[in-house]
């Protein structure tokens, strides 16, 4: 569950969202039911169907909206409480729409020593990013990871799946700015 602070950010994000991702949340129950039907049909009667359905939805729309989780519960006869136990256990599942670009700052031991804190700091202070949150313009998601296995390239920052080795605050700011324009 997110705290009150991030909740209000979520509220702000919702009000300014215009892309198709938002539409998932605004669908009527009827439309959601229709949408989840293909996932449910695909996995019904398969052991572990819940996690597979959630996986597919995460993959397709980038997060699992609450309204969808509710309809999945009805379709698979699984309590919402159990669905959230699964959703919150795995970091892979997101409960909120994610940004267009993902930034993972590695804070494993090597990266930490080589300057990850400075990179995080500048992302926070200069660009106003918060760890674990999506920016208001829904362009970026900032997360920290413990080790991406690129200790030789420390400090490493993974942007949209691409490892940026030997990063510096300046290089990262430049890269982020290029994605903004």
């Amino acid at each position: 569950m997110v705290g009150e602070g991030s909740d209000s950010v979520f509220g702000k994000i919702l009000t300014i969202m215009t892309s198709e991702t938002l539409d998932q949340g605004q669908m009527s129950c009827e439309e959601i039911r229709k949408n989840i039907q293909k996932y449910v049909d695909k996995w019904r009667n398969v052991e572990g169907s819940l996690i597979m359905v959630l996986h597919d939805i995460q993959e397709d729309i980038g997060y699992v909206p609450r309204e969808w989780a509710m309809e999945i519960g009805k379709a698979l006869d699984i309590k919402l409480a159990r669905i959230y136990e699964v959703l919150t256990f795995y970091h892979y599942f997101k409960l909120k729409p994610q940004g267009k670009h993902s930034i993972h700052v590695c804070t494993g031991t090597a990266c930490h020593i080589k300057g990850a804190p400075a990179i995080l700091e500048i992302l926070k202070t200069q660009l106003g990013f918060n760890v674990g949150e999506t920016t208001a313009d829904r362009l970026f998601n900032l997360d920290v990871v413990r080790c991406v296995g690129a200790c030789g390239l420390a400090p490493a920052v993974v942007i949209d799946g691409e490892v940026n080795g030997k990063s510096t605050p300046e290089k990262i700011i430049e890269k982020v700015k290029s994605l903004q324009s």
């Binding site: 569950m1 669905i83 136990e85 919150t88």
Partner: peptide, 26 residues
Amino acid sequence: CQEIQNVWALSFLHRGINTKMAPCGD
């Protein structure tokens, strides 16, 4: 809440040090 009462108001959310018992979602 889940097994004896079948109410499912409380759930075990998140994991590790962040594990908490709470109603699901915000």
